[in-house]
Write a protein that binds this DNA or RNA. Structure first.
Lengths: 146, 146
DNA sequence: CGCTAATATTTTGATTATCAAAGTAATTAG
DNA sequence: CTAATTACTTTGATAATCAAAATATTAGCG
């Protein structure tokens, strides 16, 4: 690997830990102190609309159905998420956010918005496209190896 | 946020989960099945040279000293890490990798090398510099908010 | 129709990850 | 030389995770 490649690798690793840590800190400063970073990500994966099933959310988060189920139990207890049994197929559970969950969702989105904005600061549109291309490369690599 | 900004955000989130998951899978295929992804990252943070102290490693990983200490207990038991008490100051513990730990370290580095390479595929040197600049922006944002 | 398969989710038991706070040991400051 | 500080470890509690077993529902097929 080139020195620059090594540097980029190291920066990715550093940034990775820092993002998670900062998210954690932001939560503890907010009205949603009772959530962990994992729970925030679960709420984020469920999203604003009552569409996704349990297994879809588990797949998006790359955890087993059992892990998600336990986590959803906690989020239901804390009043962020609700379970909605499908009318068509009673095995299927659709996950939705409560009023409180949607509030949390919007707060976290705004954090991400700020982060992405700073990520792209000082780049012109063409350059932003390049960054997106690099991300697509990476996603392609990940899909290939999965 | 622009549609492109939103897309980049979504891609970052997806890539984030996929990287961790792929790392997890790669471990389970290797001779190091007894390690979790967190333990791999701890080994990675310790690195190849017996220099870093416990608290330096804890800071790099953004965990408390207590959390690290528990994790190091497990890694010592599994023969990946060794504790080396400093001669100068007997309170200080330097962390080092065992032969087995160094083997693991190199395997994980090669995974990262591949990943970064694919990340930068098809970009010319100037463009790579741009990606690095975006990462610097992000790190700056994170430092500012910490 | 009536079994058998398959599918979607939940529960359970075991391990790891995590923090805050208390504990231990060594060094530094006054 | 004592008190305060520093570096680390232990402890107790809770969350996160998986694999495997359990539950409930639907689909397939003779």
């Amino acid at each position: 690997m080139t020195p620059q490649g090594q540097r980029i690798n190291d920066k990715l690793v550093a940034v990775y830990n820092d993002i998670v840590h900062l998210e954690e800190i932001e939560i503890k400063k907010s009205q949603f102190k009772d959530l962990s970073i994992k729970e925030i990500h679960t709420i984020n994966a469920i999203g604003m609309y009552h569409r996704k099933t349990s297994s879809e959310v588990a797949q998006a988060l790359k955890v087993t159905p059992g892990t998600l189920s336990v986590s959803i139990n906690n989020l239901v207890r804390k009043d962020y998420v609700e379970r909605l049994r499908s009318d068509d197929d009673h095995r299927i559970i659709h996950l939705g956010l409560t009023r409180r969950g949607r509030l949390m969702y919007r707060l976290h989105q705004s954090f991400h918005r700020q982060m992405v904005q700073s990520f792209l600061t000082g780049l012109d549109p063409q350059e932003v496209t390049l960054v997106e291309k690099a991300l697509d490369n990476l996603q392609h690599f990940l899909d290939e190896h999965a």
